[in-house]
């Protein structure tokens, strides 16, 4: 029964992976369009650095930087990030969650709250549901790697608790997140 469940979850993860690959290819095309690949010579150096900095922190529109990230333990990042309107876990997110699962298996007395969030570019009620879906995506993955569901509580804040108050794509990418918070 348990094996069966693990098998089922793995299947989900694999299919999620396939979808993700498909998405990634699509998104890269979109990025090429948005990023000025060859800035004109008269463009100020500052702007170029800024664009490069943003480009380095986002893959597609998923945040890959470390600005807001906190650590549950050495090397165990507390949060994963999502693409706009998506709740699919990226390769990097799955790596982060595997580290969290390993740490939770080692510290079996710890319970966690998964806080799901959305960016400010959506309607409030839909964002509440989206935050819940994101936190559950993280919860499912932790469970696949052996963390029991009774150690995990899920809460959605929708767009109510941004970590970056900015109104730009980079800020929004930091806000689309699921954060694992120690509850005890």
């Amino acid at each position: 029964m348990r094996l069966n469940k693990i098998f089922k979850n793995t299947l989900i993860v694999i299919s999620a992976g396939i979808i993700l690959t498909a998405c990634a290819t699509k998104k890269e095309v979109a990025v090429d369009k948005e990023t000025p690949a060859a800035p004109k010579e008269e463009t100020k150096k500052e702007e170029v650095t800024k664009i490069e900095k943003i480009a380095g922190q986002m893959q597609g529109d998923v945040y890959v930087g470390t600005d807001s990230v906190k650590y549950l333990a050495d090397g165990v990042a507390d949060r994963v990030f999502f693409a706009t309107n998506e709740s699919i876990l990226t390769t990097a997110s799955r790596e982060t969650l595997r580290a969290q699962a390993a740490w939770l298996r080692e510290n079996s007395n710890i319970t966690v709250v998964l806080e799901g969030h959305a960016d400010e570019r959506g309607t409030r009620e839909y964002n509440l549901a989206l935050g819940e879906r994101r936190a559950n995506a993280a919860k499912d993955y932790l469970m696949t790697y052996g963390v029991s569901s009774d150690r995990i509580t899920v809460i959605s804040y929708g767009k109510e608790r941004p970590v970056d108050s900015g109104s730009n794509p980079l800020a929004w990418s930091k806000n689309r997140r699921s954060v694992t918070v120690k509850a005890n």
């Binding site: 709740s87 009620e125 509440l128 549901a129 819940e132 879906r133 559950n136 995506a137 499912d140 959605s156």
Partner: peptide, 9 residues
């Protein structure tokens, strides 16, 4: 109202 559970509302 909506009720959200296990990622679906």
């Amino acid at each position: 109202m909506s009720f959200a559970k296990d990622g679906k509302s």
